[in-house]
Design a protein around this nucleic acid. Structure first.
Lengths: 99, 99
DNA sequence: TTAATATATTAGTATATTATAATATATTAA
DNA sequence: TTAATATATTATAATATACTAATATATTAA
């Protein structure tokens, strides 16, 4: 583990803390965990996560704005998935440690 | 990666989201990152993290209440360290991924 | 005992987040 | 075109968080 100088440390901590904040809610974490298995529609997520339509949509909107997920529309459905490899790695290592 | 049933999934997500929330602030993340190298005094952390005495103490208090760090007093100094192996693993894997 | 150092606590304001209900939009099926 | 389904947006009240300044406590040194 190479050490960062204090300036870089600050920058990294701001950046990573933002990611943690995005994930730091039971429902948002659950959403992203399920998405780590692969792309899902809003409806599928709603089944899996058991939260209200409005909240799910708001959480997805937030995760999207914060760059955690990407989305594509195909006809009636919106498909969401994890946007970055690093976030995926992070989700996987959390699953290894805690699940 | 074995799959959890939805009840266990809920429980794990609540638990891990709490941890993420504890770490989801640039200063709290920095504090815990430095502590992942080993026990430190409040004064040492203050040097390293460059935050006000009051905030540092409040953040340490919160991390303590939330079970992330443990502390011991030795004379004039308070020593803090990461309390759980799992949190340590988590911090290390974040460093591997993002630093 | 007093002063200095290390750390903790309290109070107050500003801002952010959560949850819910209501409403809006887009797409497909009848 | 209308109804139904899938998803998004807005408004709002309740709660939590962040930051600062001020004050308090405990320990050591003089």
């Amino acid at each position: 583990m190479s050490k960062l100088d204090s300036g870089m440390m600050q920058i990294k901590c701001v950046e990573v803390a933002e990611l943690l904040k995005s994930l730091a809610h039971p429902s948002r974490l659950m959403i992203t965990c399920y998405l780590s298995e692969g792309e899902k529609t809003v409806g599928e997520l709603q089944e899996l996560c058991d939260i209200s339509q409005s909240q799910l949509s708001q959480f997805l909107g937030r995760l999207y704005r914060e760059g955690i997920v990407s989305s594509r529309r195909e006809g009636q459905f919106s498909y969401y998935s994890i946007k970055s490899k690093d976030v995926l790695k992070m989700l996987e290592s959390m699953q290894k440690i805690f699940c």
